[in-house]
Simulated assay, not measured.
Amino acid sequence: MGLRRSKRQDVQDIRTAGASGGSRGLAAVELRDVRRQYGKGGGAVHALRGIDLVLPRGSFTAVMGPSGSGKSTFLQCAAGLDRPTSGAVSLGGTDITGMKENQLTVLRRTRLGFVFQAFNLLPSLTVEQNVLLPMRLAGKRPDRRRAHEVLSQVGLGDKGGRRPAELSGGQQQRVALARALVTRPDVIFADEPTGALDTTTAAEVLELLRSAVDGLGATVVMVTHDPVAASWADRVLFLADGSIADSLTAAAPEQIADRMRTLTARTSYAGAAA
């Protein structure tokens, strides 16, 4: 036998790490002095400047900040979609910083869920097939009963045979949420999940995310620009210039909007003075 590892071995290692380290630990997401730099020398861009953060299991965290504050980079590094220049990231008790790309791929497919603004559903697949896609990609046998369960949780238990194009935008986002929930992930990362929805439909999707946290014990990390969306979270983190500049707990939309105005004005003033 050679030294090459099989995909099945990688899958088993990732699942075992989640069962042994993640289930007992309190932290769903942990970042330790995480820095992300693009380029070198005088033209280097410091997207993240030493982020230290622990997000507990069963929590709902919103991440906000002015344009260029590092929100997208934060999400990408926290979710293992990008590698920090330095520092360490742990998900569900598993340190992912030194993982090889194939191991990270397995982890994302088996232990993380993703919800995006654009839904990212495959139009040629049925709703049920879209929901089961993470299981197929992870090499697991598709569990149609589990698919029906999560579709029922998001109010689409009778839509499994439809195609995405036959659904409204809000229903498509519900399918995306069901897909994120199907593997019972350690963390659901949501990137502007209500950005393409009207106010009423956005509230329905946010209520489902809130219910996933309160009723299912899920952990949600959501990047948003909308103070109303952020108010559904337990905690709002404000990024500025690659650092955590402020935070609010159980805040109303007006408080969040006011804090964002102050932070944006401060950032603009600092940029103009530099």
Rank of each mutant, 00 (worst) to 15 (best):
T262L: 06
D143T: 02
Q153E: 10
D13K: 12
L125W: 08
A44R: 15
A274R: 15
G87M: 06
A202E: 07
G43P: 07
E204W: 08
G139V: 00
P134D: 02
M222Q: 12
L167D: 12
S211Y: 01
T262N: 07
L216V: 01
M222P: 04
K140F: 02
D186W: 00
L216P: 03
G87D: 07
Q153Y: 02
L26I: 00
E166K: 04
T219D: 09
T94I: 01
S6P: 03
L48G: 08
Q171E: 15
C77M: 14
R162F: 10
E207W: 04
V175E: 12
A203S: 15
A78E: 09
R174T: 10
L239H: 02
M222H: 09
L91R: 08
A273T: 04
V115M: 06
G80F: 10
L208V: 00
R179C: 06
Q129C: 00
A218L: 05
T126M: 03
A28C: 07
Y38A: 12
R15H: 01
L206F: 09
T224Y: 01
A79V: 04
L156Y: 08
Q153H: 06
F74H: 13
R24S: 13
S211G: 07
R136A: 13
T262S: 12
D226M: 07
S168Q: 13
P123S: 12
A88Y: 05
L55C: 05
V187Q: 12
V213R: 13
C77P: 08
R57H: 08
V187A: 11
S247A: 13
R35K: 09
L53D: 09
R162W: 02
A88S: 11
V228M: 12
S247P: 01
R109F: 00
Y269S: 05
D214P: 01
P164T: 10
E128F: 04
V228S: 10
M260K: 04
T105M: 02
V220W: 12
D241Q: 09
G42N: 11
H148V: 00
F189E: 06
L206V: 01
A251Q: 05
S67D: 02
D10I: 03
